[in-house]
């Protein structure tokens, strides 16, 4: 029992993520310890050991039982905790650099594109799991030879896409900044105008004693309204530019095409009966009982309207006309 526990803990000690298995340096003692791996065998070795062992040229991996010859310049930092994942990502990176077609290269033919993706996936799987490695490598090489021009073109294109994207982001950022600036300007002007109007009203009222005060106040308010600033105009201009932004237009094209529905929009979805079977001529219709209510304060304040009453009563009166119950039942 006790030996088992000890060996278990020993294993754990060996597995310690923070210790170099070659020189047994511990992160506890040297906090800036860094691990590197080589895509040949993915064995984890600390930076110091890499320097020490491989500075003088290629050498064998120091792990027991690993006979791979490693070079210093191929060492890299491990991104993923799981070595398996790390390895697959590396393989994918390499394969996709060669097999970099997009669906456009197949003229949008989804079946062909899927077949191509399946092939690429096969190659990745084979390389990752060590199935027919030599044959697969050969396949990769021949493809690269045959499609050199296409591969270069595609690399160029993806570069352009990235550039375009960053340009667009830059443009949007600038526009946002401008907008904010203008808005702040407008706010300030508004505040200034308000102050000015207040002062102006007081001044004018002082000088024009006895005149109609509301006229004076209205006059000042109107001048303020006319003053609506150039900043506001600029903001409107900017909003227009943003609306038909060239970058957005290019971006949204695909979406808009998709959304187009076959049924055009109508507010009531076609479910509205505009054909009323009656008309109320209020000048000729004398209904003292209801019309008296129209003048009562509590009715006015509640939003009471005689036309609601007439509409309901008349609709209910005429609704049944033209309906035959025996037909409705069936």
């Amino acid at each position: 029992m006790s030996t088992q526990t000890i060996s278990g803990s020993l294993d754990e000690y060996d597995d310690n993520k923070d210790m170099c298995p070659i020189c047994k340096t511990d992160r506890y003692l040297s906090p800036d310890l860094k691990f590197l791996v080589n895509p040949e065998c993915y064995h984890k070795i600390c930076e110091n050991c890499v320097d020490r062992i491989f500075s003088l040229g290629p050498a064998q991996c120091p792990y027991k039982g690993c006979d791979k010859i490693l070079r210093k310049n191929k060492f890299k930092t491990q991104v993923f905790d799981d070595v398996g994942v790390e390895k697959e990502v590396d393989i994918r990176k390499r394969v996709f650099n060669v097999f970099n077609k997009t669906i456009d290269d197949f003229n949008g033919n989804l079946d062909d594109f899927n077949k191509y993706l399946e092939d690429v996936e096969d190659i990745v799987y084979n390389l990752d799991h060590g199935v027919d490695v030599e044959k697969t490598e050969e396949r990769l090489r021949t493809y690269e030879e045959l499609n050199k021009q296409l591969i270069l073109n595609n690399i160029e294109r993806s570069k352009k896409d990235i550039e375009n994207f960053s340009q667009r982001q830059q443009f949007e950022k600038e526009m946002k900044l401008k907008k904010k600036l203008l808005e702040r300007q407008i706010e300030e002007e508004d505040r200034f105008n308000k102050e000015w109007a207040k002062k102006e009203i007081v001044n004018r009222l002082m000088s024009s004693s006895g005149n109609d005060t509301t006229d004076v106040i209205e006059g000042v308010k109107n001048t303020v309204k006319l003053k609506k600033s150039s900043a506001r105009r600029k903001l409107e201009e900017l909003n227009r530019v943003l609306k038909d932004n060239p970058y957005f237009a290019a971006n949204n094209m695909g979406q808009n095409n998709r959304i187009k529905s076959s049924i055009p929009y109508t507010p009531f979805n076609g479910d509205r009966d505009l054909h009323q079977r009656f008309e109320v001529d209020e000048t000729k219709y004398n209904d003292p009982l209801v019309q008296e209510l129209e003048k009562r304060k509590d009715y006015i304040a509640s939003g009471f309207r005689t036309d609601f009453i007439y509409e309901r009563v008349l609709t209910e009166a005429f609704m049944g006309l033209g309906c035959v119950i025996s037909e409705e039942r069936a």
């Binding site: 509590d298 009715y299 509640s302």
Partner: peptide, 13 residues
Amino acid sequence: PELLFGAKHYTYA
């Protein structure tokens, strides 16, 4: 608001 005020003849509004 008309309900908050206690209206007795309110409508669809």
